[in-house]
Computed example of a mutant assay.
Amino acid sequence: MALPAKAFQLWLHSVAPAMSTADICRISGLKRTTLAQQLVRGKVAETTVVSISRALGLNPAESLANFSTFADLTRLAQPPTPAELVSQVATMDLLQAVITRSAADPKDGSGTLRALSPAPHATSVRNWVDAIDDGELRHRVSAATGVAPQNYSAQLTANRLSPELAVATSRAGGVGLTGGLVATGLITEAEAGWPVDARQSALDALSDGELVALAGERLQALGKTLRRQEQEQAQTEKIWENLG
């Protein structure tokens, strides 16, 4: 679900009253035809608001809060949980952390640290939902939004969630409303108000056992994904062979 075009136009007039549509598209990198089509359909994509906000030097999260779907985005702001932060650390970075700790000097704890890859990563959405799921999260989201559990699961399998569904998931999980928007890549950590180096600090706070266990879980999930892709590729090749 996108944002109502009328509400978008009211917001745009309030933040850039003297700018034409052409000016807005020029500074934000949006195509005029794309914006025009969205306005004609009466639904404007959240990414459009984010792009325009960045171009105008506005915080995208605060801009989205002007729309009813995201009204509580900043008003009910709260910091991400340690589990959410670690969920946004890429699997390869987790493995690097394991290696770094293993190679560290036990006398002084020294080791060569590598900067974490920026969020989101290849499994950000699935990891984030798993991090806040108490076992009943999917059912609560389905009941609150009307989205069938299988459709919700399909989005997670594809590592994506619509912005509206991401916020609904945050509400159902009882966490800050910006976490899902960071996981989906709609806004950045800084735009969500996450502290600098928050992910690194959460990663450093894991015990060696917790870190290795988490890395193992990620590798197991990655292995399943790769095996499924290999099987699908093999099936595709077989079909082409049969077709001659």
Rank of each mutant, 00 (worst) to 15 (best):
R140W: 00
R140K: 03
R140C: 03
R140G: 01
R140V: 06
R140N: 01
V141M: 02
V141N: 02
V141G: 03
V141H: 01
S142I: 11
A143N: 12
A144L: 09
A144P: 06
A144G: 05
T145K: 05
T145P: 05
G146Y: 06
G146M: 02
G146A: 08
V147W: 06
V147D: 02
V147M: 08
V147E: 04
V147C: 06
V147P: 01
A148M: 14
A148C: 15
A148R: 15
P149R: 05
P149M: 09
Q150E: 15
N151S: 14
N151D: 15
N151R: 15
Y152S: 00
Y152W: 13
S153P: 12
S153Q: 15
A154Q: 13
A154N: 14
A154G: 11
A154C: 11
Q155M: 14
Q155Y: 13
Q155R: 12
L156R: 01
L156F: 04
T157M: 12
T157P: 05
T157Y: 13
T157C: 13
T157D: 14
N159R: 08
R160V: 12
L161Q: 03
L161Y: 02
L161V: 03
L161H: 04
L161T: 00
S162L: 14
S162A: 14
P163S: 06
P163I: 08
P163K: 04
E164I: 11
E164D: 15
E164C: 10
E164Y: 10
E164G: 10
E164W: 09
E164H: 13
L165H: 00
A166L: 05
A166R: 06
V167H: 02
V167W: 07
A168R: 00
A168N: 04
S170E: 10
S170K: 02
S170L: 07
R171K: 13
R171N: 12
R171G: 03
R171W: 04
R171S: 09
A172Q: 02
A172F: 01
G173L: 01
G173F: 03
G174K: 00
G174F: 10
G174A: 09
G174R: 08
V175I: 09
V175H: 00
V175K: 00
V175S: 05
V175G: 02
G176K: 01
G176N: 01
L177T: 03
L177H: 07
T178A: 09
G179Q: 08
G179T: 07
G179E: 05
G179L: 13
G179W: 10
G180T: 11
G180F: 11
G180V: 12
L181Q: 05
L181G: 03
V182C: 00
V182P: 00
V182Y: 08
A183C: 10
A183G: 07
A183S: 09
T184S: 14
G185N: 02
G185M: 06
L186G: 04
L186H: 08
I187S: 01
T188K: 01
E189V: 06
E189N: 09
A190S: 13
A190E: 14
A190N: 13
E191L: 12
E191K: 04
E191H: 07
A192K: 04
